[in-house]
Each structure stands twice: as structure tokens, then as C-alpha cells.
């Protein structure tokens, strides 16, 4: 019976989230749902609480009210490491890498974390981890940089490298915080194409924060418009972009 309930439940469901910092409400009764196989984009002005929302969903912050469910299970109070093990992997706005390790070592560590880190006498660098890591690097077009120290990777690639670490966890839901920020507008679509292809091939669901309207229109199944700690509008990108309130607050009156 419980398995039925689970399969009927949406992949990610946030309900009634509230949190505030020094009197400013970064989340004020937020409800948001991601279904299996969906690509959901969050847009909104800076400081409207988008990253805070991701922080709550991944356990870095605890809401003062409300709950987050992953496939019907309450994960609100879990720490990031438990939520990661339950199947939510995150990529960061500022890439978070092990800068003293090569890219492939970073990935193998991520793969090892999935298989169980408690191996003290067998090597990290083993054929099956290496093969899996190379597969992911090829999927995201980084194979040529496998042996580069991630601390010395060029800025643009670091972002993608960060995403590969999330990929290596083989998650059910990928959470991406501005995957194309700090990238030139030409590269932006290349990165998104690679990313979308990779996500489709792995049948991943994704929730991503994005500020580029063109990216959102082209790649999101559904868009959630964020303003001052609450959801202002949501729906298919083409519809939402017609909403005058959205145009005013997010796109600018242009």
C-alpha cells in the first residue's frame, strides 16, 4: 500500500515553507511540486529567495514552518548528506569542487560515495569507477580534462565539472543553481544543449534556478516565478511570459 502511495506522490513536494532572515521573509508560504521526468525552472529577481529555497530542499537550511517531501517521504529535517543519499543531487551557483584533486578523482570520489565510502583499504582509483567516471565526462563533454586539477580548470568548465559531480551520484532529482550564470551568452546554449541531452539520456528530473529568459523558454517544461519569498505565477513558459505582472517584476518593464 505504501508503495502505491509513493508512486502516486510527486517526486518533490514543498508545502507551506516559511523562513526569514532578520525579519526579511525569504520564503513565505511556498508551495512547489516537481513531477517525475519534469524540468522545472525557477525565475525571479535577485534576493527573492530562490537559492534559499534550494538550500531548504537540500537540507542546508531548516524552514521555520512547512515540509519538503521526496517521493512522499518527509525530508525536511534531514541533513544534506542524508538527502543526497535519498536521491537529490545538487550543483552550485559557485562551483564546489575538490580543487586539489583531478577532475576524474573528483568524480570517482562521488561515485565511491554512492557505493559506500567506508572502504579503507581498497583503492579509489579502480577500473569500474574509472570507467563510470569517463562515461559521465564524455556525456558532458569534459573527457579531455579528466586529469586536470579542478582548481586549475578554466572558469567556464568549472561550472560543468560541478554538475558532473551531481550526475555521478545517479540522482532521482537534479537541483541546479543557475547552471549558466557567469557564462557568455554563446556558450550558454551549448552548455544547456549538452546538459539537456545528458539529463534526457539518464531520464533525470530537474529543478533549476535560471535568470536567462531565453534559456527558460527553450528548455523548461514548467516555470515558477518567484517574488519576495513567494510563488507569484507558474505554468508553461510561453503562458507565464504573457502575464503582465511577471513581465514587470522579473523581466523588467521592457
Amino acid at each position: 500500500m505504501s508503495s502505491q502511495a509513493t508512486s502516486a506522490a510527486p517526486l518533490l513536494q514543498a508545502s507551506g515553507l516559511e523562513i526569514s532572515f532578520g525579519g526579511v521573509k525569504a520564503a513565505d508560504g511556498v508551495n512547489l511540486t516537481v513531477h517525475e521526468g519534469e524540468f522545472v525552472a525557477i525565475i525571479g529577481p535577485n534576493g527573492s529567495g530562490k537559492t534559499t529555497f534550494l538550500n531548504i530542499c537540500t537540507g542546508y537550511l531548516k524552514p521555520s514552518r512547512g515540509q519538503v517531501f521526496l517521493a512522499g517521504r518527509d525530508i525536511t529535517q534531514l541533513p544534506p548528506r542524508s538527502i543526497a543519499r535519498q536521491g537529490i543531487a545538487r550543483a552550485f551557483q559557485i562551483p564546489q569542487l575538490f580543487t586539489d584533486h583531478s577532475l576524474i578523482d573528483n568524480l570517482m570520489l562521488s561515485i565511491a560515495a554512492r557505493h559506500g565510502i567506508w572502504q579503507a583499504l581498497s583503492p579509489l582509483d579502480r577500473p569500474e569507477y574509472r570507467a563510470e567516471a569517463m562515461e559521465i565526462l564524455e556525456l558532458l563533454g569534459l573527457a579531455a580534462h579528466a586529469d586536470t586539477l579542478t582548481g586549475t580548470l578554466p572558469e567556464g568548465l568549472r561550472k560543468l565539472a560541478d554538475i558532473t559531480l551531481a550526475f555521478a551520484l545517479d540522482p532521482r532529482l537534479l537541483v541546479l543553481d543557475e547552471p549558466t550564470s557567469g557564462v557568455s551568452s554563446i556558450e550558454r546554449f551549448q552548455i544547456m544543449e549538452t546538459l539537456m541531452k545528458a539529463m534526457r539520456s539518464r531520464k533525470l528530473s530537474a529543478l533549476f534556478v535560471e535568470h536567462d529568459m531565453d534559456v527558460v523558454e527553450r528548455y523548461a517544461d514548467r516555470v515558477v516565478v518567484w517574488n519576495a519569498g513567494h510563488v507569484m505565477a507558474e505554468g508553461r513558459p510561453a503562458e507565464v511570459m504573457q502575464d503582465p505582472r511577471v513581465l514587470e517584476s522579473v523581466v523588467g518593464v521592457a
Binding site: 564546489q96 569542487l97 575538490f98 586539489d100 584533486h101 570520489l109
Partner: peptide, 18 residues
Amino acid sequence: HALAAVHTNEVRLEYLGV
């Protein structure tokens, strides 16, 4: 390797489930 990873990026390590 996880031990060395604590040094370079503890946040990422936690987000890998470790």
C-alpha cells in the same frame, strides 16, 4: 580521499552523502 576532501570542500563532501 574523503579525508583530503574535507580540507578542500567540506560542503561538497556532505552533498555527496558523506
